[in-house]
Write a protein that binds this DNA or RNA. Structure first.
Length: 869
RNA sequence: GCCCGGGUGGCGAAACCGGUAGACGCAGCGGGCUUAAAACCCGCAGCCGAAAGGCGUGCCGGUUCGAAUCCGGCCCCGGGCACCA
């Protein structure tokens, strides 16, 4: 056996053996139970970053562990290959997105392979390949037939200079990222998917999922099912005349119908028809509405901006008092939300309260909570709490649920409203005015209207040679793409040039992995592998991706394509890998990012970052705090340096040992040395053991010395713990630490007897098995040395020897008044009374009780004794 | 702003169900080996204190024989907010 641990030669050799034996190709049928294990597919941004290494190292450890536990494991991989970065790269370098993407895929695949992940590459999926996205198109048409896909207008960010739609990411402080122009809202027609039709099931089914509670809670809140009252505020006479829209009044929705008598005004969105009507002949209002168009559509921006409003001069009537209520235009009311109009009860809604204070509108208390004194001077938390109606006429004295029922009933009698369930969740807008995505398979015919592309003409292939220039969609400027004949009438028509949201691609790729080459979207093989047993990916996907994939699965089920209700049985959301962000505003008002290695950081005396300068020319750079590693912020760390220097096993061991998978981690490579050192140590231990007399077969007979018994105790406790950490806790740092402790204990035993050598062999073999899911290369080689003629890949997970875990005495912690004062050793079988007696008689107890009698003695078996005096 | 997490030595962390705070590792310090360096090996190490001991898990308060862990309030950091993926 080689004396030196040499990952550079060892790892490629082991990888070649795996490839030659097709070690990780999973059969679609097996006598073993199946285990389908997927990491969220990466976007091919160019290079892997540490977040990927972390993600797939966790997946891979589980894949190996479950294989050793006797499962037929499938671990596939693919590429989320459509998206904006390819277009940005194309604009920067003039390279078509397709070429850039395929090159990135080739490079990143080599990186994944060099990390030695146990991936079944025969099932690889790239979402930009026509073989894949044709099924996006096919399924879109099926959804359209069922009314799940439909068209309506939606609001987008519009850059008036580049004449193009911007992604939220491309809007910085309300300005376009390239032009610096103030972004505007613009209404355009878009395709939507009726996810709200599944809202009830999406929220109810969460209860049955073995997902982190945190993620389920986020999804529940996001879907936001509420039971409220929808009602109409009737138009006042002049308003009805001017609106002349066939509606009786302004429709609003509220979950707080019990506060209805506190309405002092109403508010509508700037895009609301009532606002438009009111603006006629009111230049100030028209200017305000125009003002509201400025800025993007991001919810976070809308929620934090200053609440502004203006009266319309139009009135609606309070449904009960018939008193006029003035309608205001508010910049915080969203048109895409409910009806685009809200009732305002400043007495009991914090946002309305602030608005009323600002514009001097009336504030009325209509809810009493335990008689607390109400004042309009300042908002208090309890104003929003449920209570009892006051100043509410016939509703006075009613508690919240009764009041809501009574209000709804009365509104019903008047024909003005009723109870209604509502969701915060909105339908999924999938149209993108971009090039690098799945073409939406529709044709717009001047004679026939919207006409679907016939199935036999799918896929609508995306041309791969276009280069976007930042102003509008290249497809919309490419007659070769959009000119076509109407499939119905044969006349000249125009192809839809919008492409699909890339979340469509990632909503069902895990089905496609299960049936590569299927002639349909999926085939029966999906029924074998699905539902997925373990899904692992970043916490940033807790809502959107996971919700869309759940919806898509249910839509496929209802179309009879698959049998599962839910795609992901178990979910592990890994924490983000963060790094420092350095940026600078450009002279155009945009923003430019710099990689950490491009800047020089100076810290103040407390170690905080004080100043940053560009290495190239010393010019100042802004410190942007810390954030997720991403290509757009240029703060990703390429693992290749680590792999080149230390090998794949060290890189994997390092990311797994650094923290529990769900923790957010701030990137630092200072302790990589330690992981490398540990593998060298493991190698040396095996080497020295074998040099001293070769492998030992079997256990030594007879009663072992205490030292060896203790070592075997430690070994089997470690096997138990590591199995629990991998299988139940999905926590790897503690498992690795436990094996480190075990090897430290082995080193402490200085005994070269045959009995000791036999125990050492047992310890080393098991340590190799326990570590093999994390560091499969080095353990493959070490196993072959320890057990010549056998393969690590054929070994089952080790069994705990229960006999080795039997102990004669246990040491308990001794506390006096809750403070640690010593230890007391008792027989493992001692009763509570015997433990108490031994504790009270101990030297430490006598000393710290200072002669006082024990008031109480708490005994926790196997743990501690606490004497209270 | 709203929803969801997190905060423990110089650093990454451990403590799984309320029971020894800091396992394991990094960096550091002392020693060994070496002509020297690297590598490797042994030892020390939360803070204050000579010691006895005291203090200590973001901050303030509470429950408990006992709190990093449970409860109330606050501060800071991260993720998401529907066109980044």
């Amino acid at each position: 056996m080689q004396a030196q641990y040499q990952p550079k030669t060892l790892e490629p050799a082991v990888q070649k053996e795996w490839a030659d034996t097709k070690a990780f190709v999973a059969p679609d049928a097996s006598a073993k139970p199946k285990y389908y294990n997927v990491g969220m597919l990466p976007y091919p941004s160019g290079k892997l970053h540490m977040g990927h290494v972390r993600n797939y190292s966790i997946n891979d450890a589980l894949a190996h562990f479950l294989r050793m536990k006797g499962f037929n494991v499938l671990q596939p991989m693919g590429w989320d290959a459509f998206g904006l970065p390819a277009e940005n790269a194309a604009m920067a370098n003039g390279v078509p997105p397709a070429k850039w993407t395929w090159e990135n895929i080739a490079y990143m695949k080599r990186q994944l392979q060099s990390l030695g992940f146990a991936i079944d590459w025969t099932r690889e999926v790239a979402t930009c390949s026509p073989d894949y996205y044709r099924w996006n198109q096919w399924f879109f048409l099926r959804m359209r037939e069922k009314g799940i896909a439909y068209r309506k207008t939606g609001t987008v960010n519009w850059d008036p200079v580049d004449q193009t739609v911007l992604a939220n990411e491309q809007v910085i402080d309300g300005k376009g990222w390239r032009t610096g122009a103030t972004v505007e809202k613009r209404e355009i027609p878009m395709w939507y998917l009726r996810i709200t039709q599944y809202a009830d099931e999406l929220v109810d089914a969460l209860d049955g999922l073995a997902w982190p509670e945190q993620v389920k809670q986020m999804q529940r809140n996001w879907i936001g099912r509420s039971y409220g009252v929808e009602f109409t505020l009737p138009y006042a006479e002049e308003t009805a005349r001017r609106m002349n829209d066939g509606n009786k009044g302004l429709k609003v929705y509220t979950t707080r119908a019990d506060t209805i008598m506190g309405i002092t005004f109403a508010a509508v969105a700037a895009e609301h028809p009532l606002a438009a009507e009111a603006a006629k002949g009111n230049p100030a209002l028209a200017a305000f509405i125009e003002e509201c168009r400025k800025g993007g559509v991001m919810e976070a921006d809308l929620a934090t901006m200053e609440k502004k409003g203006m009266p319309t001069g139009l009135f609606v009537l309070h449904p009960f008092t018939r008193k006029p209520v003035e309608v205001w235009v508010g910049n915080y009311v969203l048109m895409g939300y409910g009806e685009g109009a809200v009732m305002a009860v400043p007495g009991h809604d914090e946002r309305d309260f602030a608005f009323a204070k600002k514009y001097g509108l009336a504030i009325t208390q209509v809810i009493d909570v335990d008689g607390q004194p109400y004042s309009t001077d300042a908002w208090q938390e309890w104003y929003e709490a449920p209570g009892v109606c006051v100043n509410s006429g016939k509703f006075d004295g009613m508690a919240q649920p009764a009041a809501i029922n009574a209000v709804a009933a009365d509104l019903g009698v008047m024909g003005l409203g009723e109870k209604r369930k509502q969701f915060r969740l909105r339908d999924w807008g999938i149209s993108r005015q971009r090039y690098w995505g799945t073409p939406i398979p529709m044709i717009l015919c001047p004679a026939c209207g919207d006409v679907p592309v016939p199935d036999d003409q799918l896929p609508v292939v995306l041309p791969e040679d276009l280069v976007p220039d930042g102003s509008g969609s290249p497809l919309a400027k490419s007659p070769a793409f959009y000119q076509c004949q109407c499939p119905q009438c044969g006349g000249d028509a125009r192809r839809e040039t919008d492409t699909m949201d890339t979340f469509v691609d990632s909503s069902w790729y895990f089905f496609r992995y299960t049936c590569p080459g299927a002639k349909a979207m999926v085939d029966a093989r999906a029924d074998y592998w699905m539902p997925m047993d373990q899904y692992i990916g970043g916490i940033e996907h807790a809502i959107l991706h996971l919700l869309y994939a759940r919806f898509w699965t249910k839509a496929m089920r209802d179309m009879g394509l698959v049998k599962v209700d839910e795609p992901f049985r178990n979910l592990l959301t890994q924490g983000m890998v963060l790094n420092h962000i350095f940026s600078r505003r450009t002279d155009k008002g945009g923003i430019a990012y710099f990689a950490p290695e491009e800047v020089e950081v100076k810290a103040d005396t407390e170690g905080k970052i004080a100043s940053v300068a560009l290495r190239a020319d010393g010019s100042p750079v802004d410190y942007g705090g810390i954030g997720t590693m991403s290509k757009s912020k240029r703060n990703g760390v390429d693992p290749q340096d680590l792999i080149d220097r230390y090998g794949a096993d060290t890189a994997r061991l390092y990311v797994m040992f650094a923290s529990p998978p769900t923790d957010t981690i701030l990137w630092s490579d200072t302790s990589v040395e330690g992981s490398f050192r540990f593998l060298k140590r493991l190698w040396k231990l095996v080497h020295d053991h074998l040099e001293a007399g070769g492998p030992v077969a079997g256990r030594a007979p007879g009663e072992a010395a205490k030292e060896l018994k203790d070592l075997r105790f430690k070994l089997h406790r470690t096997i138990d713990k590591v199995g629990d950490d991998y299988g139940r806790r999905l926590q790897f740092n503690t498992a690795i630490a436990a094996v480190m402790e075990l090897l430290n204990a082995l080193t402490d035993v200085k005994d070269a007897s045959p009995a000791a050598r036999a125990v050492a062999q047992e310890v080393l073999e098991n340590a190799v098995l326990l570590l093999s899911p994390v560091v499969p290369h080095v353990t493959t080689v070490l196993w072959a040395e320890l057990r010549p003629g056998t393969r690590l890949l054929d070994q089952p997970w080790p069994e705990v020897d229960k006999a080795a875990l039997v102990q004669d005495t246990v040491e308990l912690v001794l506390q006096v008044n809750g403070k640690l004062r010593g230890h007391v050793a008792v027989p493992a079988t001692a009763s509570k009374e015997e433990i108490e007696k031994a504790a009270l008689a101990s030297e430490a107890a006598v000393k710290f009780m200072e002669g006082k009698p024990a008031k109480k003695v708490v005994v926790v078996p196997g743990r501690l004794v606490n004497i209270v005096v």
